[in-house]
Simulated scan of single mutants.
Amino acid sequence: MITKLRTALCALLAAIALLSGTPAHAAEMTLTDAIRALPVAAETNDGYERTAFRHWIDEDRDGCSTRAEVLLEESRTKPVIEANCRVISGTWYSYYDGVTVVDPAKLDIDHMGPLKEAWGSGAKFWTKERRQAYANDLGSARSLVAVTAATNRSKADKDPAQWMPPSADAHCTYIADWVGTKLRWSLSADQPERDALLRIAEGCGHQRVTYEPAA
């Protein structure tokens, strides 16, 4: 009973923060509790267009797009940059498939929660400004991740009931990142998605989820 109340309270605080526009303190819970805190709702993608989410903007006007910002942040060596913040080399670890990449042209920046998935999970009701903020979310390290183009395109707009990273070692991190992103943005999960998350979480030991609701 105490666990259920704690989970419900975390979800309530996140919702209050979303409605007020004021970020709440970071919430932390077990992976299983975090999954159970997700609202469950049928997913409908009617009306979705990728252009509803303007992305790869230069929000802070420093000359670097969101894509470039992620590449700069995630490179494990000092990246080489040309004019107009064009990243031409570095060292990136694609955790989905355990591959190290030095050529950024071979990388995609994955939206942890695909844009179409977000649309069907609640973003269709957002303003265009909030959808833009979601598509360019640099406020959480889990929201956008540099991965090999092949794995990103294999994932496409699938949820964890339909697709998981090819590396089994990535599964627990991946679903924690997935759930944390949905909680951060107050997005729902459909029933097959929730069931798959709970099933995978059974093998994740003491994995925890920490997230801060988006402003």
Rank of each mutant, 00 (worst) to 15 (best):
D103H: 05
E82P: 00
D110M: 11
V101S: 07
V99W: 10
T91A: 04
T91R: 10
V99N: 12
A105S: 14
T100D: 09
L71Q: 02
L72C: 04
V99E: 15
D108M: 09
K106V: 06
T91H: 05
K106T: 12
R76F: 01
I88W: 00
V70T: 06
K106R: 15
I81S: 03
L71S: 02
T100A: 05
Y95A: 12
V87N: 03
V70Y: 04
V101C: 06
I81W: 01
T100P: 02
C85A: 09
V87M: 04
V70P: 03
Y95G: 07
I88T: 15
W92H: 06
Y95C: 10
I81A: 04
L71D: 00
E69H: 05
I88C: 02
D110E: 15
D108A: 11
L107N: 13
L107C: 12
D103E: 07
V102Y: 02
T91I: 00
I109V: 15
S94G: 15
K78L: 10
R76W: 01
E69C: 03
Y93E: 06
D110L: 08
S94N: 10
T100S: 10
S94A: 14
W92C: 04
V99S: 09
D103A: 05
L72Y: 01
E74V: 04
R76L: 13
W92E: 04
G98Q: 15
C85H: 06
